[in-house]
């Protein structure tokens, strides 16, 4: 539970940290390379994909691996490999967008709460408590079910789900930081609160937040897959990993590969992000081993 009370202002630059990470932590470097490969594969999907991900071939449905379809075909005879590549685009986009949004909003709220204190703090943190009081997946499920399943609402749902975690993580060190000399000095110089929060406090908590972001991005991608699996994903024919798993689930006995390949794609993305997050955590503060 010794999460973030130890702030270390004499931190190395990010570049140095990364180098250190690469040297010391082979697993994380591996994770990073894996993640980059996945991202590149997603970006260049149109160049790599052997088939149009939307092209149906009803007569060739639910086929296992073959030279023509390297990971088989789905219920509509579409190429699973091509769909995974395109699906990664959407899944990554949703996962990363919502994580970044949650990070920015959550940190802003956390810093404001911590810096201002008093009733502002109470109101913000109470709201965060309310959000945290629902089981993690249920919050997202509820929001998407109510607002409708589309890209924007799914991003919104995931953002709302993980936002309070960032707010909490940003708040604690802010309280500690605002008593520090350099913040006092800035205040004495007549800097506005906004400027102090943005320029003096935010940069000092960036490390912890980034670690958290990489881990929660992994979770965000899983939430997207879970929501799609329950039937609350982006509308077809757009492929996303969760929808592909759901579509194949009906054939889990006779054609398990339809679900399992995209399932492993989710696993790889999440694993790579977790590896990176782990390494970053070690690099930024060896004491934060969870």
């Amino acid at each position: 539970m010794t999460t973030v009370d130890t702030i270390n202002p004499e931190k190395r630059s990010t570049g140095e940290q990364l180098l250190r990470l690469a040297r010391k932590n082979k697993l994380s470097t591996f994770g990073l390379i894996m993640f980059l490969v996945i991202v590149l594969a997603a970006i260049f999907a149109p160049l790599i994909a052997p088939h149009d991900p939307l092209e149906q071939n009803i007569l060739a449905r639910l086929q296992d691996r073959s030279p023509e379809y390297i990971l088989g075909t789905d219920t509509f005879g579409r190429d699973t490999f091509s769909r995974i590549l395109y699906g990664l685009r959407i899944s990554l986009l949703i996962g990363l967008t919502s994580t970044v949004l949650a990070m920015i909003l959550g940190c802003a709220l956390g810093i404001i709460a911590g810096y201002r204190g008093g009733w502002i703090d109470s109101v913000i943190m109470r709201c965060m408590d309310m959000l945290l009081a629902f089981p993690t997946l249920i919050t997202g499920l509820f929001i998407v079910a109510v607002l409708g399943a589309n890209f924007v609402n799914i991003v919104l749902a995931i953002t709302v789900t993980i936002l309070p975690k960032f707010a909490r993580v940003a708040r604690a060190p802010t309280i500690a930081l605002k008593e520090r000399e350099f913040v006092e000095a800035a205040r004495a110089l007549g800097f506005s609160d906004l400027r102090i929060m943005a320029l003096h406090i935010a940069p000092n908590i960036v490390g912890e937040v980034v670690v958290l972001a990489s881990l929660w991005a992994a979770y965000a991608i899983r939430i997207e897959a879970y929501l799609s699996f329950i039937g609350l994903g982006v509308a077809p024919p757009t492929p996303t990993l969760g929808t592909m798993i759901r579509d194949g689930f009906e054939h889990i006995l006779d054609a398990p590969f339809v679900s399992i390949y995209p399932g492993f794609a989710v696993l790889l993305v999440v694993l790579s992000l977790n590896l990176v997050g782990d390494g970053l955590r070690d690099a930024i503060d060896p004491k934060l081993r969870d």
Partner: peptide, 18 residues
């Protein structure tokens, strides 16, 4: 550690299906 990271990363439905 690798096993635990895998455990963390396994999507719930994949575990269940397998």
């Amino acid at each position: 550690r690798v096993v635990s990271l895998l455990g963390l990363s396994f999507p719930a439905f994949l575990t269940a299906i397998l």
